Amino acid sequence: MGMTLKDLVAEARTQVGTIEPAEAQADASAGGLILDVREPSELAQNGAVAGALNLPRGILETRADATLDTAEPRLTGQQGKGTVHVLCAAGGRAALAAATLRRMGYEADVIAGGLNGWKAADLPVEMPG
């Protein structure tokens, strides 16, 4: 039998570290990047972290590969220069995304608790308007 999503997320979590939301925010202010891998509809419904780059998990690899025309400069510019702190709603997609980024040569970790942890730490969230 193949792996389940739960298995894949558990495996990814063994490959990446976590960072507390306030630490991620401080590091982003010093040159790190917060990458939100939620879908646009989730941002519209639940808000977004100010200054975060939103790239849905489903297109991450096409934006993280600097050799492609679809590469996202804010992300590829972090490679070798700073950590990418990955965020989703609760942490599963972020773990998968961070593990993928690490395989692609990035320094990446997961923001503990996802957007829920960010909000619980009373950090700013913007609602689209």
Rank of each mutant, 00 (worst) to 15 (best):
R13E: 15
T14G: 12
T14I: 10
V16Q: 05
V16E: 08
G17A: 15
T18H: 15
I19H: 10
E20Q: 15
P21C: 09
A24M: 07
A26W: 12
D27K: 14
A28S: 14
S29E: 15
A30G: 07
A30D: 11
G31I: 15
G31P: 09
I34D: 04
I34G: 01
L35P: 02
L35A: 02
L35G: 02
D36W: 03
V37F: 03
R38T: 11
R38V: 05
E39Y: 13
L43A: 13
L43M: 09
N46W: 07
N46I: 02
G47W: 06
A48Q: 14
A48E: 10
A48Y: 05
V49H: 07
A50I: 14
A50D: 14
G51F: 12
A52C: 07
A52Q: 07
A52D: 05
L53P: 05
N54T: 06
N54W: 05
N54A: 12
N54Q: 14
G58L: 11
I59F: 10
L60P: 04
E61R: 08
E61M: 07
T62G: 07
A64Y: 00
D65H: 00
D65L: 00
D65A: 00
T67Q: 01
L68E: 00
L68I: 00
D69R: 09
E72Q: 09
R74H: 05
L75P: 00
T76F: 02
Q79M: 12
K81Q: 13
G82D: 07
G82W: 05
V84H: 01
H85T: 07
L87N: 03
L87D: 04
